[in-house]
Amino acid sequence: MVLVTVEKKKLARRGIKVIFYLYIIGIFYFVLLSERYGRDTGYDTSHVNLVLFKEINRFWTYRHLLSTEAVVTNLFGNIFAFSPFGFMIPIVINKKKAFFRAVFATSFFSLVIETSQLIMKVGVFDVDDLLMNTVGGLIGYMIYRVVVAVYDLYNRKRAAK
């Protein structure tokens, strides 16, 4: 019986790894190539924002002039987009208590994305995005910890019966 559980866990981990790699490919496509956000052409020069909270403040200040989609996408899109990364990274690296690794990996992945935008001259290299992506990864990791805690509690109660 325990052997089946271990095998199921291994199979689930493999499935999460596949989903994780597909997710990374999807993020790169969305950020660098998606025509929906004007990525089909690119700029003549690179665009950079190194002032923390500049874009967040700009979108918040002018939210009444912008579409709801633009405001939500720019203020919350990065957080939502990177939450799955923070959730899946402890599974992929096979560490239950991997807080710092999850935050570092999310920050590093975000930096790779932003640097790719800079090099390819699509989008903007934005420190606000680095911050919001990392916050998203942190939220994803916290959700992961809650799920693990609930799962462990469920298994302990089931084993006690």
Rank of each mutant, 00 (worst) to 15 (best):
L52I: 15
F59T: 02
F87I: 01
L33H: 07
G86W: 04
A105W: 03
F109P: 00
T61L: 15
L111E: 01
F59S: 09
V112N: 04
H64S: 13
F80P: 00
A102G: 02
F87K: 00
V48H: 10
Y62C: 09
G38A: 09
V72M: 11
T45R: 06
T115W: 05
F108S: 03
V51L: 11
I113Q: 03
N94V: 07
N94D: 15
L32S: 10
V127S: 02
G77Y: 05
F82Y: 15
T45K: 13
H47Q: 14
T73I: 04
A70R: 14
F30K: 09
L111I: 12
R39E: 06
Y29E: 12
D44Q: 15
I79Y: 04
I89Y: 09
W60N: 13
N49K: 13
V112P: 01
I79K: 04
R63N: 10
I27T: 08
R101Y: 14
S110P: 03
L118E: 04
F82L: 12
F100W: 15
L75N: 01
F87A: 03
L75G: 06
F100H: 09
H47S: 12
S46T: 15
Y43Q: 14
A70P: 01
I113F: 07
F108T: 05
F76T: 10
M88C: 00
V48Y: 14
T73E: 08
T41P: 00
A98F: 07
F99E: 09
S83G: 12
K54C: 04
V122M: 01
R63L: 07
G77S: 08
